[in-house]
Nucleic acid binder design. Sequence first.
DNA 1: CTGAAAGCGCTAACAT
DNA 2: ATGTTAGCGCTTTCAG
Lengths: 343, 343
Amino acid sequence: MKFESVTIKDIAKALNLSISTVSRALRGSYEISSETKKAVLEYAEKINYRPNPIALSLKERRTRAIGVVVSEIANNFFSQAINGIESIAYNRGYHVIITQSHESQERERVNVEHLAARGVDGLLVSLSSESADVSYLKELYEKGMPIVFFDRVSSEIETHTVVANNYWGSYHATEHLIYQEFKRIAHITSSPHLSITKERLDGYKDALAKHNIPLREELIKYCPHGGMKVPEVEEAINALMKAKQKPDAIFCAGDRLTMTCFGLLKRMKGKKEVGFTGFTNTAVGDLFAPALTVISQPAFEMGQTATEFLIQMIESRRPVTEFQNKVLETELIIRESSKKSVL
Amino acid sequence: MKFESVTIKDIAKALNLSISTVSRALRGSYEISSETKKAVLEYAEKINYRPNPIALSLKERRTRAIGVVVSEIANNFFSQAINGIESIAYNRGYHVIITQSHESQERERVNVEHLAARGVDGLLVSLSSESADVSYLKELYEKGMPIVFFDRVSSEIETHTVVANNYWGSYHATEHLIYQEFKRIAHITSSPHLSITKERLDGYKDALAKHNIPLREELIKYCPHGGMKVPEVEEAINALMKAKQKPDAIFCAGDRLTMTCFGLLKRMKGKKEVGFTGFTNTAVGDLFAPALTVISQPAFEMGQTATEFLIQMIESRRPVTEFQNKVLETELIIRESSKKSVL
DNA sequence: CTGAAAGCGCTAACAT
DNA sequence: ATGTTAGCGCTTTCAG
């Protein structure tokens, strides 16, 4: 099957005009008589003419489309961020093409290359947890492709970034657990490659230090696929809970990780014994049992800001050399899961 | 900023060959000497040549991309379905472009038109709750654009469809509530335009009839935006719970609706009094309090099957005239929220 | 005011 | 075995 559509040529033929006249009439050029214009516009309307964006892209070397690369759309944080992205893009006349890396570096590379080849005007990227090496992005960026990072950024590439204040979010969450008088607070986090992992880990460590709680490496567990692979999380939890000295609270970095971990804990019936909190943007934290204490990120706003930066970059006539690195505050929403008194 | 890339022309110039020779060498044509081929391939590799898919699309009138139109990706059902879609598309060499209608008919139309204009080879559509009129889709379809519906289908357009067995899913859920000895079972559903609304409503009605429970229209509430607009759901619940004769159970049709409704009920402290179940593909139904009884759809598989149908249609040489209407079974997962004994 | 022609990157007859 | 040319749909000089 193939899909045929009306072209400018059909209009020209039908009206006995040249292609260029039709083209000009369509875009309302001043050098076309109003009668011709009228005739063309009317006929175009009648046969429901739509310019072919592919031909336009080929000609103009721009597509008015921006590519988005995230790990998973089935992740509260990312789906909210994407809504933010769309809200801006849509108003500015850009279309959004969403791709998922599923935390695979290889898949991310394929997606990025395809988007570039398809001629998106710019890229909004949140790295996969496997992406230690970003050379393919860097190459593209150096060739002139506008790229803005959000959430999971890379220090290898100097450009605009939009992130949450992961350090403080993590610091406050940890401190909150300390104030609740938890003594052994474990931290389950994602791949050590990720910027967010490092920042959240630092917040955790500094909060402990501030309160003179010794840092125990055995209480820090990495799940390289950020909760996508359940066995990784299972292993982390088992290692923690089967140790002689169990943690009395667990703090998870990452949306997917928090949900996976919370689920496993609860199914292991271990939940009663440990305080729990984590980064997640779920809208239903209060419906869980126990109601979940969460660190929530301004995902929608992050998407919006990143998109504004990107479009600004795309539409800038000269190479951009001043970069903004926006940091947005997180919100700690305290519920039962982190209250020692109700455990 | 603009993004420059290497073309076949650059290779031709560098190697002192004609453009067509390079083109042929690149695609390994038998009429090119192996030396030339080697030289071209090596140089292409060296300068990291990538064919321009936009030029290709313009030429071949195909893009190897399929467009997806759903209401919301932040919906467990749809994000799982999209993963199914991607899993097949990716293997068959197609790219997936996801768009969201946010339950707006207008937005859906814009998305569909843009996808068509951008030259996707086919469309995978689940209608928005506002879409009573599908004439713009029909027009496109009649012009030859392959379209497959999944989940929310239209009887206006005769094509392949993939849906869950909504009728039986609903019937069983309702019957389950009846067996639990609930007497006044309310049904909160989405827009009456949608195929799924009708099917689920029928299942509900038939289960009541089978058990000689009179149907009460005042127990059926429509939320035209399927839970996207909280006030709609609030109003429905208020109307139900403030009536003289309150329902003793509520059955929700739709993923978003179920979560919104469950949340509201719980926050209204009304939860203790009513049994509850609904269609949703959440992975964490067991973590809620009370643990949620759900009707789950084989979303991933639905996405896969729809994509197989679509690609089959795209690649078919002759117009397709025999259509498959695949129905996949739902699963009722019983937990506490629907058990009368624990209320 | 309108038309002819070149060109965006690529493929595929049609030469040679 | 390789080159020349036309054409996909459109815009845009350049010529009338």
